[in-house]
Simulated scan of single mutants.
Amino acid sequence: MRRWPPAPKAAASCPASAKSSPRKPKRKRGERSGCGRDGSRCADPRASAKTAAQFDTTTTAQKAAAAAPPASAEKKLGLTVASLGDPTQPGFWIKTPLVKSAGKGRIVNPANGKSAKVDLQPLAGPASSGSQVSLPALQLIGISLTDLPSVEVYQN
């Protein structure tokens, strides 16, 4: 016969790294640390969000910072097919197989020249596979959420 709720797991099953890791700083409920390009925090969308406007929790200042021209030299990583990523993840980011480790960069819509500064996040798969882009980043560079356009990816 099973007991409900199940008995807690023994402390020995906890990895050593979890025991000694420092505590993360507290933040307000519904905020994610450092998801804005200007270092500010972004609020998570509400659970009741249904429209693109409700999922986009970035501020005007965060959008302006993401749209600013690059301040340093960049390296072009390549062209990738962009699709809408998880709309519940706030901020400006791209998950792409063109990078092997997280970093900062920029995406450009070659059709209109608009660009957005983004966090580059690795995505498993061959470099020829597509990428996932955040909702605010797609909107900033003028791409419809249902399109599958090619975007240029640059790394700082």
Rank of each mutant, 00 (worst) to 15 (best):
K63M: 03
P126H: 05
R37F: 08
A47V: 12
D38K: 10
K104A: 11
G103E: 06
A52H: 01
Q139L: 07
A68W: 00
F55H: 08
K63F: 01
S72I: 14
K50L: 14
A111W: 06
K19W: 15
K28H: 07
I94T: 12
G130F: 05
R32H: 08
G30P: 07
S33Y: 15
G30A: 08
R2S: 12
T59W: 02
L98H: 00
K75L: 11
G113D: 08
G125H: 03
Q62H: 04
T51Y: 01
G85F: 11
E152N: 04
A18R: 15
N156W: 06
V151G: 00
S21I: 10
G105F: 01
K26C: 10
S17G: 13
F55D: 02
C14T: 14
R3Y: 11
S21K: 13
G78D: 01
L140T: 07
A111V: 04
A68V: 00
A67G: 05
L84A: 02
G103I: 01
S128T: 15
S128R: 14
A16F: 13
T60Y: 03
K19F: 14
K28L: 10
S33D: 12
S33V: 13
G103D: 09
A82G: 09
A127N: 13
S48T: 15
W93A: 06
T96V: 07
A66F: 02
A124S: 15
G130H: 02
A11R: 06
T58N: 04
V81T: 15
R23F: 07
A82D: 08
S83Y: 07
T96P: 04
A18N: 11
P136G: 03
R46E: 14
S131I: 08
K95C: 05
P126N: 10
Y154N: 05
A10V: 11
P149D: 03
K50Q: 15
G78H: 06
T80N: 07
V81C: 11
P6W: 02
P126G: 14
D147N: 13
A82P: 13
A11Y: 03
V133Y: 05
S21D: 08
R3T: 14
G78N: 04
A47W: 06
Q121S: 13
A53L: 09
A67Y: 05
G103S: 09
P122V: 11
C35F: 13
K28I: 04
T57E: 00
Q54C: 05
P87M: 02
Q89T: 12
V153Y: 01
P22I: 10
R46M: 14
P87A: 06
K28P: 09
P90S: 03
K28Q: 14
